[in-house]
Nucleic acid binder design. Structure first.
Lengths: 190, 190
DNA sequence: AATATGATTAGATTTTTGTCAAATCATTTA
DNA sequence: TAAATGATTTGACAAAAATCTAATCATATT
């Protein structure tokens, strides 16, 4: 199983928030914000063991929020400034937002389509709006854009999928996927 | 144990980041960012059980990132817009930054002071710069600001704390806590 | 060189979090 | 009214995270 870069990136973004998602680490950031400090000092102030502080500092450094610098044999930690100014949305948002949206819609639609089509035929017309919509959008693709159909032709095409062609026709019109005038039907491009 | 409001507030801030600190929840936010969605759809897309999604949605809603609205018998989730625009620093920072700083410095200093003073006397002059600094800052407070002291007077005062007054005097000058000129010493206000 | 001090790592334990199956609710359609 | 569907809650289990003690490192002081 190879991980895609997008996945790794996602994990990294979550990691940044995870680093911020602990009260002690927020306190540490505030203390260091006042001035750079070393671990022992933080441990004394926060009443925690140095090992624990070390652990928290490692997480914050890892996430790119802190930087360490040696001073004598103290390890002085200071804020990495730019990061904190970024808005949440900046970190939440994925690299290719539209790509995500694409894959997405498909997954749900496919589930519905799979549930209602058996051997190429429509088992049932979904009662629920959202599911029916998915089905109708599939069916309308059987009609060529721009071309005009008589009601008889429409029925013929729809009969391949379900016997209740009257309902299907009506739904098509209702949802504005098709339009009718004087017995002639045509597909409406979305 | 009564919690202070500051503590509760801190916990709440951490909670917001915690809600963001999981890859699945970042994906959910991105999906909902594209358009409002209901739980079942998210479950289908992310290939997780509805119960799990419900759990994640509850966390995001709790943190004030999502809002839910009934549509038929779907629960449609959408983004609470303002929140995502806030910069990280806005959420990290505590209400009273200076108060924190105060309490803070004290805790470390007190630890050092406690370690080196026994029964009012200085057990030992700390070898380490940072600790010595804490001690010196304490000692210099024995001198009145603005007043001038002879070396003999200085020795007299310091002898109450430690026998090696020569070293203490030297450190005081080095660290610019006091100044000397022609045998006269005086305290320097920071 | 020996000692002291702060930082880090490793291992163990406790606590918190993520996930699912099953049960329950609420709403809508038949 | 009965059946269907999505949402939520509960309980159980697995995985991850927080904390500590003890051991090890690195640097500085004596």
């Amino acid at each position: 199983m190879s991980e895609t870069t997008a996945e790794k990136d996602l994990e990294k973004r979550a990691q940044l928030f995870k680093a911020l998602g602990h009260p002690v680490r927020l306190l540490i950031l505030n203390l260091i914000h006042a001035k750079p400090r070393h671990g022992e000092e933080l441990a004394a102030i926060l009443n925690l063991k140095p090992a624990t502080i070390s652990h928290h500092l490692a997480q914050l450094t890892n996430a790119g929020l802190l930087q360490a610098e040696k001073d004598q044999y103290y390890q002085m930690y200071s804020l990495v400034k730019g990061v904190l100014e970024r808005p949440l949305s900046d970190i939440i948002r994925l690299p290719q937002p539209d790509l995500t949206a694409e894959v997405t819609v498909d997954a749900y639609q496919q589930k519905v389509l799979k549930a209602f089509f058996k051997r190429g035929r429509l088992v049932q017309i979904p009662a629920q709006l959202k599911k029916r919509q998915v089905i109708l959008e599939r069916l309308v693709q059987e009609f060529e854009p721009g071309r005009q159909y008589t009601e008889r032709e429409v029925n013929h095409i729809l009969l391949d999928f379900h016997e209740d062609v009257a309902s299907l026709r009506r739904y098509m019109i209702e949802t504005k996927l098709m339009q009718r005038e004087r017995g002639i039907y045509w597909r409406i491009d979305s």
